[in-house]
């Protein structure tokens, strides 16, 4: 026989009574209050799962309930009657610092592995499954919204555009999957010297970039970098990777409320920045290979990056390049490739 003290609530009104509860080995339960005497079978009652050391409720048939913080006695009773094994297991996990430490390590490993390998692999796999029509649609929509916000009509000399277009086609004609690749010229006072690769194979370059270049080969180097993004399908993969990351972070810290929304946004941004850096390296490596096959020295690429870095620094609104602190490092690495 086990006994404990509890509050009794009848479920009809907010009154409260102190009672003593006796659990008999036969499964009978007696509840004894000042002017209350109730009898139940334990099998007919429902016990809340234990969480930490907080008070729990024992729900009685007919809607009344008992509240008690005597968790150890309740657990001993529940064990006698073999009640709620899974929930007890979860509680056991939650009550040990050793398990907490192990959970911490395991969680950290899973998050790291997921971000380092899981998300990129899953995104690359999903990107393959996305039909051509969807890519075209995404590309068109992206260009459309870029046109609305950032870009204006190009004012470059048509002959210059034709010449660059020809170089672009010569650069891409032998590449696998390059049928939909095309070069688009735009002016942009806000983006400055810039180039963007869209998932449908469109490469946008700004007038400022063309004017900034000292020669055609420097422009070709930037185009080669953007073609690297296309060949590796970075556009779609980054959409997919960033969505997956956002889902993982939301699920991990999902039940966290307003005070720590910083804590949810910040890691997502950091992971996204990391992915984008990885993509830049990948596109650089690809560009160097492509330039080599065209007998263009890698130096042209480094020169162009330096010019772009300087131009954005002078602009003052150096948002693009200041968010890529790796530019200096990229230049050094490209220069390192020079024989």
């Amino acid at each position: 026989m086990k006994k404990l003290r509890a509050y009794y609530y009848d479920g009809q009104n907010s009154g409260r009574q102190e009672v003593e509860v006796h659990f008999f080995d036969s499964g009978d339960v007696h509840i004894q209050g000042e002017n209350l005497a109730l009898r139940y079978r334990f099998a007919d009652m429902r016990l809340d799962p234990r969480i930490g050391n907080m008070a729990r409720h024992l729900h009685l048939p007919g809607g009344a309930q008992l509240e008690t913080a005597d968790n150890d006695t309740l657990d001993a009773v529940a064990r006698t009657f073999d009640h709620g094994i899974v929930q007890r297991l979860v509680h056991t996990l939650e009550s040990s610092w050793g398990v907490a430490l192990a959970a911490l390590v395991l969680t950290a490993i899973m998050l790291w592995a997921g971000i380092e390998y899981g998300v990129p692999v899953a995104a690359a796999w999903a990107a393959v499954g996305i039909p051509e029509a969807a890519r075209t649609k995404i590309g068109e929509e992206s260009l459309h919204s870029l046109d609305n916000i950032w870009l204006t009509r190009s004012t470059l000399d048509p002959r210059l555009r034709q010449r660059l277009d020809l170089r672009f086609r010569r650069l891409t004609e032998t590449l696998p999957g390059s049928r939909g690749y095309r070069l688009a010229f735009r002016d942009s006072s806000k983006l400055g010297a810039n180039a963007i690769a869209l998932p449908d194979g469109t490469v946008v370059i700004t007038d400022a970039l063309v004017k900034l270049a000292g020669n055609d080969e420097q422009i070709v180097a930037v185009l080669a970098h953007e073609i690297g993004h296309l060949q590796h399908d970075h556009g779609l993969r980054s959409i997919l990777q960033n969505s997956l990351t956002a889902i993982i972070v939301a699920v991990t810290l999902g039940d966290v409320t307003s005070i720590s929304s910083v804590a949810v946004t910040l890691p997502t941004l950091l992971v996204e920045a990391r992915y984008s850096r990885q993509f830049e390296w990948e596109a650089d490596a690809y560009a160097l290979e492509l330039l080599k096959s065209q007998a263009i020295p890698a130096l042209r690429f480094a020169e162009m990056l330096e010019r772009m870095q300087d131009s954005h620094r002078d602009d003052g609104d150096a948002d693009y390049f200041s968010s890529h602190p790796g530019t200096q490092e990229r230049i050094a690495r490209i220069r390192g490739q020079e024989p």
């Binding site: 979860v90 959970a103 395991l106 039940d255």
Partner: peptide, 8 residues
Amino acid sequence: LVNILLTL
């Protein structure tokens, strides 16, 4: 912590 682990 156990919540996060089991969720993952």
